[in-house]
Simulated scan of single mutants.
Amino acid sequence: MPVKPRRSIAGLVWDFERQICLQPFESTVMSGREGLWEDTEEVSLSRLLSLGERYDEFIETLQLLFASDPSQRIQTHVTVPHAYKELMRWQVNLVAARPGALVVWEDVTDAVPVEPPTLQQIGLHTAHLTGVNVVVIAPAHGTLAMFLTPPPEWVQHIYRSADVHVIHQDDVEAIQKAVADERFAAAATDQPVSTDVRLLTTDGTYERVTMDLLPFPGEIGTGLVVGYFVRSTTA
Results as ranks from 00 to 15, higher is better:
residue 47 R to N: 11
residue 114 V to D: 04
residue 49 L to W: 13
residue 8 S to L: 11
residue 119 L to F: 09
residue 222 T to M: 01
residue 109 T to Q: 04
residue 77 H to Q: 06
residue 127 A to S: 09
residue 94 L to C: 10
residue 20 I to N: 00
residue 180 A to F: 06
residue 58 F to L: 02
residue 16 F to H: 11
residue 202 T to N: 01
residue 21 C to R: 02
residue 150 P to C: 07
residue 108 V to M: 04
residue 74 I to Q: 12
residue 160 R to C: 11
residue 139 P to L: 02
residue 62 L to Q: 00
residue 186 A to V: 14
residue 63 Q to Y: 02
residue 119 L to A: 11
residue 32 G to F: 09
residue 160 R to W: 04
residue 128 H to F: 13
residue 228 Y to E: 03
residue 173 E to F: 12
residue 191 Q to N: 14
residue 84 Y to M: 11
residue 165 H to V: 14
residue 212 D to W: 04
residue 44 S to R: 07
residue 228 Y to W: 12
residue 18 R to A: 02
residue 203 D to N: 13
residue 103 V to Y: 14
residue 187 A to D: 08
residue 26 E to Q: 09
residue 216 F to C: 00
residue 158 I to N: 10
residue 161 S to R: 14
residue 198 R to P: 01
residue 136 V to I: 13
residue 216 F to L: 10
residue 134 V to D: 00
residue 151 P to C: 03
residue 151 P to L: 06
residue 92 V to R: 12
residue 85 K to C: 09
residue 90 W to R: 10
residue 11 G to A: 12
residue 118 T to P: 05
residue 138 A to C: 06
residue 137 I to V: 08
residue 79 T to I: 08
residue 235 A to T: 12
residue 183 R to V: 13
residue 127 A to F: 09
residue 51 L to K: 09
residue 46 S to L: 10
residue 183 R to L: 15
residue 183 R to S: 11
residue 174 A to M: 01
residue 217 P to E: 09
residue 183 R to Q: 13
residue 78 V to D: 05
residue 106 E to T: 12
residue 210 T to D: 13
residue 217 P to N: 10
residue 54 R to N: 02
residue 55 Y to M: 12
residue 120 Q to P: 03
residue 161 S to F: 05
residue 205 T to D: 14
residue 111 A to S: 01
residue 138 A to H: 02
residue 32 G to I: 05
residue 91 Q to C: 15
residue 191 Q to L: 13
residue 63 Q to L: 14
residue 15 D to A: 09
residue 103 V to R: 05
residue 93 N to V: 07
residue 71 S to T: 15
residue 23 Q to Y: 04
residue 191 Q to R: 14
residue 176 Q to S: 08
residue 9 I to P: 03
residue 180 A to T: 07
residue 93 N to Y: 03
residue 114 V to R: 00
residue 31 S to N: 08
residue 207 E to Q: 15
residue 107 D to C: 06
residue 10 A to Q: 04
residue 68 S to M: 11
residue 196 D to R: 15
residue 75 Q to A: 14
residue 157 H to L: 03
residue 25 F to M: 04
residue 192 P to F: 09
residue 196 D to G: 10
residue 104 V to Q: 15
residue 104 V to E: 15
residue 58 F to K: 01
residue 164 V to W: 04
residue 60 E to R: 07
residue 50 S to G: 14
residue 121 Q to W: 06
residue 171 D to M: 05
residue 226 V to F: 02
residue 178 A to Y: 05
residue 136 V to L: 04
